[in-house]
Amino acid sequence: MECYLGIDLGSVSTNFALIDRYGKVIKKIYLRTAGRPIETIKNGLKMLREDLDSDIEIKGVGTTGSGRKLASVIVGADVVKNEITAHAVASLSQIPEVQTILEIGGQDSKIIILRDGVVVDFAMNTVCAAGTGSFLDRQAQRLGIPIELFGEIALKSKNPTRIAGRCAVFAESDMIHKQQLGYKVEDILKGLCQALVRNYLANVAKGKEIKPPVVFQGGVAANSGIKKAFEEELGMEVLVPEHYDVMGALGAAILAKKAISQNRQKKTNFYGFEAAFKEHRAETFECGGCPNLCEVVQIYQGDKLMARWGDRCGRWSQDVAV
């Protein structure tokens, strides 16, 4: 069977989506990157291989996410695409009429505005990561609640308390204070959901016209408390697609399929699942060629230099064809 693989290497999670030639998701994997991107990709490849029938043939591979370049070097990608486009493509494949995409991932959040099936505007959070997945993770941990139950508990709240959501640091101290005053955990969690939604709408979505259908995706979409808070604040239904957690990977897979189908002669760059068993390592050095002192990263497979990046002038990266 012909398949296309999408990999979304993010700061917090690394996701895989495998689609068939009709774009249907056959298999998806959601892994924690846990600060070891190379290992995580290889683990994902191994898991994929174990689960799949032997007649699967990978015809194309797409990578996205903040680590898209690294992922591409390790697996051999046909398409390397930014996560905004990938998310939009995936969303359109699931809900073709979508006009607004709210995406909250591990460390970034985005809003994508579409009209008539075309992206017309987007925004990403800048320096502030308040209200993204890793912050929620940390707060759940601090309260001793499994992150999976976060939303469910928040939904029980009848009197949500108001949390200052401007900044993750202040939100945390505000939560601690509210705990000390004796507020219930569910009220604090619900208050946190509302604060994050307010913060998102005031910063990331500032000045954007949010029209239905609104799709909510990314890892945080698993949190029913945040979904509900969005619905209350926006006054409209918020849809969470089936594959909300791997939308970036799904988008990358769809883009790979598109790229390959546009050029049937082209063979995929995919190194095969064997890539998972090869040894990869990253090394860095500081280039002393000029006062910029760029940190150059080199990726090796065994002894073979696969890629270099990090230099501003191209002195090092030019020598290596990725």
Binding site: S66, N82, E83, I84, T85, F122
Partner: peptide, 12 residues
């Protein structure tokens, strides 16, 4: 992050 925005904008 800068490149991501720029690439996405060009796609747009």
């Amino acid at each position: 992050g800068f490149n991501t925005r720029l690439e996405a904008f060009l796609d747009l």
